[in-house]
Simulated scan of single mutants.
Amino acid sequence: MTIRPSAVILGLAAMLALPAAVSAKDETPHDRAPAFQGVLNCRGIADNAQRLACYDAAAAKMGEAETHGEIVVIDRAQASAAHREAFGLHVPSLSFVTRALRPEEVNRIEGVVDTAHADANGFWTFELDGGAIWRQISGELWRPPRHGSKVSIRRGSLDSYLMNVDGQPSIKVHRDQ
């Protein structure tokens, strides 16, 4: 097998260009709604009057887009509440909600047991105060949960979840709804 020098040069050029393309992509901001990006674009205008006119026009477009449902604006508290409601459910299309949250907020939630009942095998089903239903799939509780028990649920490995009930050792759980 003979390797032509031109093929080697083309291969090396492609490999050298790849990191530049990847780093350029990494430096760009998240895909932004055009109405929001329009406001950000005004920052680069040096003349005060032109910059103000740009901001006024862009803010009006952003307000219209929000009114018509073309963009949705949420704050950190709303993102946290939405994440808490969806925690444990496989909803990858909502991953944009967690951009504003810290890793410990994304990987763990705290809650309070509203109701709990055991099945015939002794595994518990928990309904938390927000309506989420979690089912025990392995592990053992020393004390049965009760109304008002404090729970901490965190991500485990391989899409699993671990729950601590009133400080007891972790049990493996699954979110049913």
Rank of each mutant, 00 (worst) to 15 (best):
A118V: 04
I74H: 02
E105M: 11
R51H: 05
A79H: 14
A116D: 03
K25W: 07
L16N: 01
S6R: 13
A77S: 13
D176N: 11
L162K: 06
W134A: 04
S80W: 08
R175F: 11
H30I: 04
R102A: 15
L141A: 06
L101P: 01
D75T: 07
V91I: 15
V39L: 15
H83N: 12
D75P: 00
L52E: 10
A53T: 09
G122N: 05
T115M: 01
F123K: 14
V112A: 01
A24T: 04
A13E: 03
H174V: 12
P5H: 09
D47T: 14
S23C: 06
A46F: 00
H117E: 13
V173R: 07
L128A: 08
R4P: 00
G167H: 07
P169I: 09
R102G: 06
D119E: 09
A58H: 12
A49T: 13
G69Y: 03
F96K: 00
L101C: 02
A13W: 05
K25R: 14
W142R: 13
N107D: 09
L18Q: 02
S95P: 01
I137D: 09
A100C: 03
A13L: 14
E105N: 11
V165M: 06
Y161E: 02
S6N: 10
G148V: 00
S93A: 12
G38F: 08
Y161A: 02
N41A: 10
Q136W: 04
V91T: 14
P29W: 12
Q37P: 06
I3L: 15
K150M: 02
A82K: 06
L18V: 03
R154I: 07
